[in-house]
Amino acid sequence: MKTLSTAATENVSALNRLSMNRGRSIWPRIRTYLLQNFLPPLVILCLLLGVWELLCSGTGATLPPPSQVISETWELILDPFYDNGGNDVGMGWQILASLERVAVGYSFAVIVGVALGVLVGQSTWAMRGLDPVFQVLRTVPPLAWLPISLAGFQDSNPSAIFVIFITAIWPIIINTSVGIRNIPEDYRNVARVLRLNGLEYFYKIMLPAAAPYIFSGLRIGVGLSWLAIVAAEMLIGGVGIGFFIWDAWNASLISDIILALVYVGLVGFFLDRLVAMLGNIVTRGTSAS
């Protein structure tokens, strides 16, 4: 026993030494991290910009080179939050307007999608009845829903939100139901032995057990809704990054379009990362067992 405990203290002190070393060597580690994760994409980006500059610099080029894009959109880049009334607002407002629509539509999709997914995952009869319907409806392209929702809502903003909702909901439903169906029998048995009631089972077993699946559905869903909003806004008009692009095309402002595409890409990337990060926080430990 005594030797064991001395061995343990030795281990502890060794650990301390290790973590102290780690503390001292934090800067080189950050440097390697940056080197490994940021240098390669930076190099590729510069190369691509260089090629683009070369290709579009000649006479007769239909698209502007990056240098021209930046000089033409410099005002837009510098002041993303100006407001001249109507559609003439800064890029920041345009993006925020789109994000707001996505937030509303996506939130509905999350609530309804998880609820339906739980239903389909729990009940064999619900699955038999609903699954074929879902499988058909989910193949309908997002924009195909727009005319029917315009007819239904008689207004453009709710229609755009509905398109987001209907686009994002399918992967959420399907992933949730798969997650629920894959809850190991043992967890159910634990719940039965403990006599957890329906609500306790839902919060303490079902949601955490299915969380990794649910979050992969949420992540696909947020990506799809960002894809759909740009297309939907092109058709419905008003403030929003989608209509901004369409407006710029009508005014032949190709540089504005390119700038908007960069913004759309970056925002989509951050949305994806945001949901992935939330998923990692919520499902810590669940997937690794």
Partner: peptide, 29 residues
Amino acid sequence: NAPGPDRALVFQNHSLLPWLTVYENVALA
């Protein structure tokens, strides 16, 4: 005629809930 805590089961593959800590797993019960 139904499962209950008066007949506690230890499963072959432990079936602890992986998202709970050791303490929380016992505390749940």
